[in-house]
Design a protein around this nucleic acid. Sequence first.
DNA 1: AAGCTAGTTTTATAAACACTGAACCATCAA
DNA 2: TTGATGGTTCAGTGTTTATAAAACTAGCTT
Lengths: 140, 140
Amino acid sequence: MTPTTEPLSTSADVFKALGDPIRWNIVQQMAEVAELPCSTLEETLPISKPTISYHTKILVQAGLISVRKQGRSLFYTLRRDVLQQLVDDIWMLAPEPRPVREGRVDHQAGAGRRRRAGAARAQASATADTADREAVLLTW
Amino acid sequence: MTPTTEPLSTSADVFKALGDPIRWNIVQQMAEVAELPCSTLEETLPISKPTISYHTKILVQAGLISVRKQGRSLFYTLRRDVLQQLVDDIWMLAPEPRPVREGRVDHQAGAGRRRRAGAARAQASATADTADREAVLLTW
DNA sequence: AAGCTAGTTTTATAAACACTGAACCATCAA
DNA sequence: TTGATGGTTCAGTGTTTATAAAACTAGCTT
């Protein structure tokens, strides 16, 4: 059973993973290099080894980082594609509300309209509303 | 004491605010309209009124939404500029690691707090940081 | 005024979270 | 094999979070 049980991390999961100062720090460190040794975290973080393991596990489960094992050492890599996917998710909320369906009124502030380049996200996420997303992208 | 003590919500704070399914749902709802009545949340969310108040308070404190009071009713507005600021923060991590300042360990115990180049975004001008974003896109 | 209504605050509780020491599992080095 | 090392898992602890019932505040409507 549980054949390759997809973690299927939602946006909220990823946000929660990033919503801890320690983990955000880890992610930032990883952004600076291509690969980050686990041992480095022991030196840069003010927490014990088990806690490091605890946090990195959360980041892995959220899909934010991947792990490579070499001997007894671990090396983490930031999943930049997942971050970009996340940016897309947020970005969709940032522009002005869509043309309005349902006669909701109040279209006050008219500023802040902008467009976004290609944003080639691979990763067919399980959101299933990709069509919707594209439509939104086009109407910006 | 505490003269207008800016909450100064960090990225981790904003992420934490978004890292709850209920709150992410609220934010998504607000993205669809210019203003969202609090009463709507009572209908669309499967939680009690006090809990709604609890969650909206968190979103306000994180700076993600603003409130307008009209009579006894409340109306929330998504702070899209804050979201765009958040996108900037993530976006910076997404591209490949910069020029490779060598994989050497320069881990000072002070936690790598290298704020990225000239990102002193005053969160008002929406046009100003557009250039920044484009720049990133181009060097990407 | 009294009564109703939209939200908040208080209080309480069960669950989740962050953290650590101790024990553990691998791998490398003698 | 024995020992040391890099990380994980386990068991326990204190803290934070999400939740709602009850009580409350403020604005409408008679």
